[in-house]
Nucleic acid binder design. Structure first.
Lengths: 221, 221
DNA sequence: TAAATAGTGTCTTTTAGACAGTATCCT
DNA sequence: AGGATACTGTCTAAAAGACACTATTTA
């Protein structure tokens, strides 16, 4: 065996102004010092209990964000992706509402649209694309998009999130049938969102059981 | 950063006598010398171009099997899973037909049913369960099960493979509609499989494009 | 009361499944 | 001929989608 560099990188995604955005941070050391990159860091064998724990620690240290929805994505590896040598990065992706970034997060985080192909160091472009692709794919048949919403939301809002991620308009009746089938939401009694000159919409929240655990559908939306 | 042990483990799965089996090898060195375990090994930064390449190399070295369908599964990590220290194993799973194991593979491979909870070293039990769960899940909506069949097969044979993996009987007409929709098979002209006192079944094979690349369905089977 | 969006009932279209028929082998 | 399984045509059932109607707000 030879020396291998072990890191975690985190693709922190959020929805802002109808666009999917990723959180970037200016690197404070070489290589690529001063360049915007995905938050990442070395695994600390003396304090991390596993790579997920390392990812949560790095995310907290670099962005100030605590325990969002976070899932392992894939490993990215090779002799050339990091100029320091043969490396493995175990990439994770995390989903938060824009509110969380706005309040809890460090002010030097840059939110950038995932579609604008700004140049990224290492193979972070490839990691980002994999994360977005995974998010879009899982949105087809799971409760994943809920983690991009705030604590409470209306069904029309949630439908717009799903439609944005899936890239297609959804039938309102079918969408609501599926959401009911998933049985993951609870209406907040007496709470409505008034947004203009029309009937207010019922506010919902995720049932407690589904705050950290995905709900899946047999057939997609 | 501290020293971290980087390895790959491979869950090599095959279908034999109507049972899903995993390939185990007696370990030839400490720790757990002499114990049956998943084939695995260190990443070699001087020869491997990435972890997938390391997995293919380890699989070839330890089992003699070359370039099957192989996909990254997940990373398993922590301070205690390997007695030598804090380690990351990037687990992969591979699918082959029993023929391949029977001919190309080393004779000291042990095929064990994935359901029989024989004791496994490290966290190999957990890796195995994740692999089987991934296989079953992907079988719902992809061509993955095809990689467990031989080069040629009949539709009734393929349907039995899918039914075994999905754990439920499938409607014959619907199954064939979906297979047709996937458009991944080609009938071998004039070739039939005679298996008893009844009409022989048309033999099929995977179209060349799909030998290494999965085909996905919008809605599952 | 007009306009706008929320929420629901119901009909139509699409997709999946049941069933039964024909096809083709072996004994 | 009879039994067995392959394959296919067609009807039925279930799911998804279209459409329209009611509900409730502001201007």
């Amino acid at each position: 065996m030879n020396q291998i560099i072990c890191t975690v990188d985190i693709v922190l995604l959020t929805l802002h102004e109808g666009v999917l955005k990723v959180a970037l941070l200016k690197r404070d050391r070489e290589p690529f010092k001063g360049v915007n990159a995905l938050p990442g860091g070395f695994i600390h064998s003396n304090e991390d209990s596993d790579v997920q724990d390392a990812a949560l620690r790095v995310l907290k240290e670099k962005t100030g964000i605590d325990a969002p929805y976070l899932e392992q994505l894939a490993s990215f590896s090779g002799p050339a992706r990091d100029p320091r040598g043969w490396s493995v990065s175990i990439a994770h992706y995390a989903l938060v509402s824009f509110d969380v970034i706005n309040s809890a997060a460090h002010p030097d985080i840059k939110l950038v649209s995932v579609d604008r192909p700004s140049s990224l160091p290492f193979d972070h472009r490839s990691i980002l694309e994999t994360a977005v692709s995974r998010l879009r794919s899982k949105s087809q048949y799971s409760s994943l998009p809920c983690y991009l919403t705030g604590e409470t939301f209306t069904l029309p809002q949630l439908q717009r999130v799903y439609e944005f991620l899936m890239g297609e308009a959804l039938n309102k009746v079918s969408f609501r049938r599926k959401i009911t089938e998933m049985d993951m939401l609870e209406a907040i009694p007496g709470q409505f969102e008034t947004a203009g000159a029309h009937r207010p919409a019922q506010l919902y929240r995720l049932k407690k059981i589904f705050r950290q655990q995905l709900q899946l559908l047999d057939r997609g939306l």
